[in-house]
Amino acid sequence: MISLEHYLIVAAALFSLGLYGVLTRKNAINVLMSIELIFNSANINLIAFSRFVSGDTEGQVFALFVIVIAACEAAVALAIIMSLYRILKDVSLDEASVLKG
């Protein structure tokens, strides 16, 4: 029997992997993929909680909204990466370093 804890462990693992990827990857596309992992870990949480804790559909509706927003964000991010690629001929984050934080 799969319980709430199993879902939460998967979600936490995905979140950690995503965060690790964001912090270590140098390729903008890879960072974007890691960000998707973070969003989807939250989705697993929301749906699991909706099923096991609250018993209503609020969490599932939230997850649907998150999927839409994640798609929008990915589209905008890819467009920006494309536009930067036209200038730099590269998608590595090391190249995009004229502005230093």
Partner: peptide, 20 residues
């Protein structure tokens, strides 16, 4: 373009974290 890329990567991670 660079500013925009930094903004979107940083922003997506922050809001993703908040979402979690």
């Amino acid at each position: 373009n660079e500013a925009s890329l930094k903004y979107i990567l940083f922003g997506a991670v922050s809001t993703g974290t908040m979402l979690f």
